[in-house]
Nucleic acid binder design. Structure first.
Length: 337
DNA sequence: CGCCTACCTACCCG
DNA sequence: ACGGGTAGGTAGG
């Protein structure tokens, strides 16, 4: 009986500890802001799960990944953050230990082991247009995102705009993910597993909710992944080289060259993958490859030609470099420049 | 291969 | 007011 009581007290203490930590303290991760610019990185069309959020009158970003809700802000030298998990009586770990665990997750997500300074310098020397974009868009990082979330998010992206893509991805989480927590009246959900998207009735529900023809792509691709081995297939995908991974992804319905490259670049670590969409085509035609101007559609040959041009210009991390250009173009387009 | 068209929906712009 | 154009494309002919 006293054992049970003691257990309860421990859980209660952990809960209290958790509440105190999460309400009053920000975890810290040392990171110079020239190595990571949160706004451009989180709001640049890579992930559709982040939104701006004011806390103590400071700009923060709130988003979900790894089944946790994260609130991030930064100053010159640090990332300051809070984390919210489903369970409050989690493993008994001291604050420092938890800070280290979370820091490692963030380092992995933002790929902080890769130092941007030397690459930005290299890309600036190779290309004056990059150099100009880099002045404002320093610290733009490729996020290392979850493959499943990436696959279904970018299936939603076809012939679509960012605000509607975001609303679709959030609906997928709300309908088929797990509830994590509630913050300021807003409920946050993890992104669903493939298995959850293969339940009967998903396509109809998504259609009712404005997904359009993408509803079928989502359910069909989920079923195809399940048939190929589900989680096993996804793990195998992670072990493939760029060409093989891209080819495998393109066997799924709703995934063509562009979407496959997004997934390769942003969740499989193939940093030379270079998604060519209308923006990139416009940039390429305007500044780099005048001979492709006035083409109606991007043919496969042209797609590869544009990618190869940038890979030759920027080298093996061309996908990363191009994201900086893309980000600059996107902001200009959104009137934020 | 290259080119064409249909596909859902919401929002912008004239 | 209302209709065409378009938004980080893809599949099927």
């Amino acid at each position: 009986m006293s054992m049970v009581l003691k257990g309860c007290l421990n859980i209660w203490r952990d809960c209290l500890l958790f509440v105190i930590i999460r309400m009053n303290n920000w975890y810290k991760l040392i990171c110079n802001n020239c190595e990571l610019q949160l706004s451009g990185t989180l709001n640049g069309g890579q992930s559709f799960r982040w939104s701006k959020h004011l806390e103590d009158n400071q700009e923060c970003w709130i988003g979900v990944f790894k089944k946790r809700v994260w609130i991030l802000k930064q100053n010159e030298t640090e990332i300051l953050y809070k984390v919210f998990e489903t369970k409050c009586g989690f493993e008994k770990k001291e604050i420092e230990e938890r800070n280290e665990l979370y820091n490692n997750i963030l380092k992995d997500y933002f790929q902080l082991n890769l130092s941007l300074r030397e690459y930005y310098q290299q890309w600036s020397e190779a290309d004056p247009i990059f150099k100009k974009a880099a002045q404002q868009f320093y610290g733009i990082r490729i996020l290392n995102q979850d493959v499943t979330e990436n696959i279904f998010s970018f299936i939603c992206s076809s012939n679509n705009n960012i605000s509607r893509i975001s609303s679709m991805v959030n609906k997928l989480a709300k309908f088929y993910g797990d509830k994590i927590c509630e913050i300021n009246g807003e409920t946050y959900y993890s992104f669903p597993d493939v298995e959850n998207l293969t339940q009967p009735g998903v396509e109809a529900k998504l259609r009712e909710n404005g997904f359009g023809y993408r509803a079928k792509y989502i359910t069909k691709s989920a079923e195809m992944i399940k048939e190929k081995g589900g989680e096993m297939w996804l793990e195998k995908l992670k072990g493939m080289d760029y060409e093989e991974a891209k080819e495998s992804l393109m066997t799924l319905t709703g995934i063509g060259a562009k979407v496959a490259d997004c997934i390769c670049l942003m969740s499989l670590g193939h940093l030379g993958a270079l998604p060519v969409d209308t923006h990139v085509y416009q940039i390429a035609a305007k500044f780099y490859m005048p001979h492709i101007r006035n083409k109606k559609t991007v043919t496969k040959k042209m797609y590869d030609e544009i990618g190869d041009h940038f890979r030759k210009l920027y080298g093996p991390l061309a996908g990363w470099a191009h994201t900086v250009l893309f980000c600059a173009d996107l902001k200009k387009f959104q009137g934020e420049l």
